[in-house]
Amino acid sequence: MKQDELANSADAAGEEATKKRRWITGEGAVSVITVLILVALWTALTDSYIDDLYFPSPMDTIQVVGRMEGVLVGYFLATMYRVVVGMLIGAVLGVVCGVAMSWNKWINSVLDPLIEGLRPIPAVALIPFFILWFGIGDTGKLILTAIGGFTVMVVTTLEAIKHVSPIYIMAARTLGASRLEIYRTIILPAITPTLIGGVRVTVALSFALVIASEFMGAQSGLGYMIMLARRTLQTDAILVGVIIIGITSWIVDRFVRIVGNYLTRWAPRSE
């Protein structure tokens, strides 16, 4: 038994070393090839069957980036500001409210009907109101994004706290921890893995909400750029907008996962 374990860990160490030596793994190579085939297909199809009017070729798309560089950076930063700030406000408030609701039943009775009333409404449906109340500047978009993130995180937090194993809480109580200390040292770390899942949903939702609100009324941002391009049938600019959103959303998600993995490095993982 012990020897098997040792042998296994030796194998694992050996594998680790080979991984480091090679610059790409077999699985990685397959993924790269898939992407290359897709780009080749895209080039072939846009060169022959598909009209530029409906879908631009890879070359057109790259050229448009060069042409639009100046405005592109500005639009990108405007969108990122709305996504990141709105998401942070919403997520932090959501976790704080979720914890407060589980801490005190009166806080729960006040907030629960408000949240339950808000939750079934898709946040995008509120955009017209927000434009009416706050205009087409940043304020409305930040509040909208925050509401989206808030509802996701408050529900995730409440569910996660409900599922903390009572044995940890009992053990902490017998060892002399106060209620506040139990929240700080037991409940918060125990719910962190679940919260990170919630944050990843929030990231995707925040991009969607910001872009949608930029479609409906804005003077900057990638959503605004896509809307303008649609009016003038510049499909290459639309595609550039879409690709930038996709890549950034992926990077932000990746960042959340890396931070999350570090915060939950104690958790057993199946890989």
Binding site: Y168, M170, A171, S178, I186, P189, W266
Partner: peptide
């Protein structure tokens, strides 16, 4: 203090942090 039937060791704390938990208070 109590030792439970199930696994009550806090998975997010190291061995030393677990053992020292009650001493903090």
């Amino acid at each position: 203090t109590m030792v439970f039937q199930g696994d009550a060791v806090f998975p997010w704390m190291t061995v030393a942090q677990n053992i020292g938990y009650g001493l903090r208070y």
